[in-house]
């Protein structure tokens, strides 16, 4: 169908309006997101000078170091491992909690959702310091154990404490998308499952879990990605005993003498590529759901 000139004029007008809506966000992303990203990418191929100054000599040495030196490779493996564990525990805690909230009457739901979000009203760092107080050798838990005449435990500055702190911080990011998925879930389907001979557990496994998978996947992405680059929790609760990728990057940029920005940039780049892989996997899984 041919469009009249008036219609074409209308279309052009509409397109201009849409572009106007797009422009501010586009500008923001370009300047404050894409440019720094490019800077990091360029740095990662440069040579570090003797005093930590940049030498404009292109090299692949940063990437070679990264994949050959055991301490770096270990840091990657360790980060992936603890992020995976954090995601798993956040899921095991978050799914039942989300289900519990969805099953409440609307007013109670709202209160419970606010309770889930309340920790965000306090700075994350402050909350992690609070965990230090709880876990310390003479902290809340050990003081209680001592008062009861029980042997005290070595809790703070362990990998367990790191995991605890990470799970604690990430559970809300798991609860919210799963809650959203469960909120859309038609619980009549669980009755249909029971009617067809499925126990509660089997109905969950065959019906509720697959149907809320998009929520689980979104939660997993929201938890996994920030966890892999974290350095605060492993330093404050884990005692910086072992290196995670975030700790290494932070050290190379800020603490080591001399600093090594090119190597830090290469590490960041590899981390981003790994995460990009996970995100693509996530998008593939969600688009398959929709098909």
């Amino acid at each position: 169908m041919a469009l009249s000139s008036f219609e074409r004029e209308q279309q052009r007008h509409e397109q201009r309006r849409l572009m106007a809506l797009l422009a501010p966000g586009m500008f923001w992303l370009l300047v404050f997101f894409l440019v720094p990203l490019l800077v990091i990418l360029v740095y990662s191929f440069l040579t570090n000078g003797p005093r930590g100054n940049l030498l404009w000599q292109p090299t692949l040495q940063n990437y070679v170091d990264l994949f050959t030196q055991a301490s770096y490779v270990n840091a990657y493996v360790r980060s992936l491992w603890i992020s995976g564990l954090t995601t798993l525990f956040a899921l095991l805690l978050g799914y039942p909690l989300a289900l519990f909230i969805v099953k409440q009457p609307p007013r109670v739901r709202l209160v419970l959702l606010i309770l889930v979000l309340i920790p965000f009203w306090t700075n994350f760092l402050v909350r992690i310091y609070a965990w230090q107080i709880i876990l310390a050798n003479n902290g809340l838990i050990n003081a209680t154990l001592a008062a009861l005449g029980l042997p005290t435990l070595f809790l703070l500055n362990t990998e367990g404490a790191t995991l605890l702190g990470l799970v604690y911080g990430e559970v809300p990011f798991m609860v919210l998308p799963i809650y959203a998925a469960l909120d859309r879930f038609d619980f009549t389907l669980m009755e249909a499952g029971a009617d067809l001979g499925a126990s509660k557990w089997r109905a969950f496994w065959h019906i509720m879990l697959p149907m809320t998978m998009p929520g689980v996947a979104a939660g997993a992405v929201l938890v996994f990605i920030p966890t892999i680059g974290q350095f605060v929790v492993s330093e404050l609760l884990g005692g910086a005993k072992v290196d995670y990728i975030g700790n290494l990057i932070q050290r190379l940029f800020l603490r080591s003498n001399p600093p090594n920005w090119p190597l830090g940039s290469a590490m960041s780049t590899v981390m981003m590529i790994v995460l990009l892989g996970f995100i693509l996997l996530y998008f593939r899984s969600t688009t398959e759901e929709d098909r």
């Binding site: 038609d186 009549t188 389907l189 009755e191 249909a192 499952g193 029971a194 009617d195 067809l196 001979g197 499925a198 126990s199 065959h206 019906i207 697959p210 149907m211």
Partner: peptide
């Protein structure tokens, strides 16, 4: 006796078909 042990089946008002399963998988579920 819980529903999954009763010798009855239900056709729901909303049908309550499992949307993530094919027709054959729905019918095979029980």
């Amino acid at each position: 006796v819980p529903p999954h042990h009763r010798p009855v089946n239900t056709v729901f008002q909303s049908y309550a078909l499992f949307p993530h399963m094919t027709v054959a998988q729905n019918v095979a579920f029980g």
